[in-house]
């Protein structure tokens, strides 16, 4: 966890530092005002940076809590587990496909493909169930949102 903690602190400090420099470009509301356009943002980002530095020092110089004895490789393996990445990839493709394909078609394909690909052993029965779940989901969404709530679909 130590390496992950350091990566997290590094990303955190970089992002907050960039934000801090951006906030410096803000103009003041007026010279006579008691409040400042920069005060709260700089307070938040400044204190955030201090916390980041404390956490980095803590990670570097203090022992990790006993329950965090997971190694970097294990964490990476857990992060990029094939099923997790498959679901994420399918979801990103689904969002990208909504506009060109239309919501209902994209949703139907996404639902069916996700169930079929996530199922441990694909059999004809599991494919039929995947198709049924997809159709029922579409029917539920259409009935609930379009017919009942009269909301717009993507």
């Amino acid at each position: 966890m130590r390496t992950i903690d350091l990566i997290f602190s590094g990303v955190y400090l970089t992002v907050l530092l960039i934000a801090f420099t951006q906030i410096g470009d803000l103009r003041e509301i007026s010279a006579a005002s008691f409040t400042s356009a920069k005060l709260f943002p700089q307070l938040v980002l400044g204190l955030g940076l201090v916390m980041g530095v404390i956490e980095t020092l803590r990670t570097l110089f203090l022992p990790s809590p006993a329950d965090e004895g997971i190694g970097f490789r294990q964490t990476l393996a857990m992060t990029f587990r094939p099923r997790r990445m498959l679901l994420l990839a399918l979801f990103v493709i689904y969002l990208a496909a909504i506009k060109p394909l239309g919501f209902l078609i994209a949703t139907g394909i996404f639902c069916f493909a996700t169930i079929a690909l996530l199922t441990p052993r694909v059999t004809p029965v599991s494919l039929v169930i995947a198709a049924l779940v997809s159709v029922c989901t579409l029917a539920l969404i259409y009935q609930l949102l379009v017919v009942y709530l009269q909301a717009f679909l993507p």
């Binding site: 906030i23 509301i29 356009a37 980002l45 204190l47 955030g48 916390m51 956490e55």
Partner: peptide, 29 residues
């Protein structure tokens, strides 16, 4: 050992809340 991380998380949220138009000064942040 997680208290500082919890604070960092809070500051991430507070920083995300800064994004957008500041109504008082009329500037984007």
């Amino acid at each position: 050992g997680r208290a500082v991380k919890a604070f960092m998380a809070a500051f991430i949220g507070l920083a995300l809340a800064l994004v957008g138009l500041d109504e008082a000064s009329g500037q984007t942040r």
